[in-house]
Design a binder for these strands. Structure first.
Lengths: 97, 97
DNA sequence: TCCATATATCGAGTAAAGACGATATATGGT
DNA sequence: ACCATATATCGTCTTTACTCGATATATGGA
């Protein structure tokens, strides 16, 4: 759990928005073919208006920071919030900051 | 209280370090001529190894984000943590993130 | 094996952040 | 008025981040 890396990952509105969407996937990704319990697959986030490669880069940043988990199913990769890391980060930040 | 601006301000190790030093000024700035109750004056932070102008820019970023307060006394400007804003930010982040 | 789809990575261009020294501004003292 | 000190701002350079289209990789199906 790298606090600095997480803070950098959180310092971009698009990535905050992605994390926020993932809090209630049913409110934002009901059009997804696959059940939302698996997570939300990458292409869904292109609704933010950015290109596929840019979205992939943001998801990579979130994933490297540990804020989301990924799970490959077939040709898709499903993203979920990593609630454990998020909670641990908030706890540490509340202590340290 | 601009959450995005605060997150950006926190996304640099030097600024985190400054905020951390300000938690216990007596542990880090006992050499200061002025009483620490007034705050810590800008030049004290040059101990991080950065130039005067760079330190000033970091302090400006923290101040604009509302994470520190400033108080001019004579030719010095004293910096203190803004505990109210910090607490409000942590509360909102814990809710929103 | 070949093609379609999903995602990642590459290369290049632009924008933003960080750093510096030099200079400007503000204050206080003589 | 002049000089010294503290801080901010300016101009410039370097580095990092963001974005894109194009290409590579991985999977699945025909």
């Amino acid at each position: 759990m790298d606090k600095d890396e997480i803070l950098k990952a959180l310092s971009h509105p698009t990535r905050l928005e992605i994390l926020n969407w993932l809090k209630n996937p049913q409110d934002h990704f009901s059009s997804q073919e696959h059940p939302l319990e698996m997570g939300v697959c990458a292409s869904q986030f292109e609704r933010c208006g950015l290109s596929q490669s840019t979205v992939s880069a943001h998801l990579g940043t979130l994933s490297r920071a540990g804020l989301v988990t990924t799970r490959r199913v077939g040709q898709w990769i499903f993203y979920k919030r990593n609630e454990e890391t998020i909670a641990a980060f908030l706890k540490q930040l509340t202590q340290d900051l």
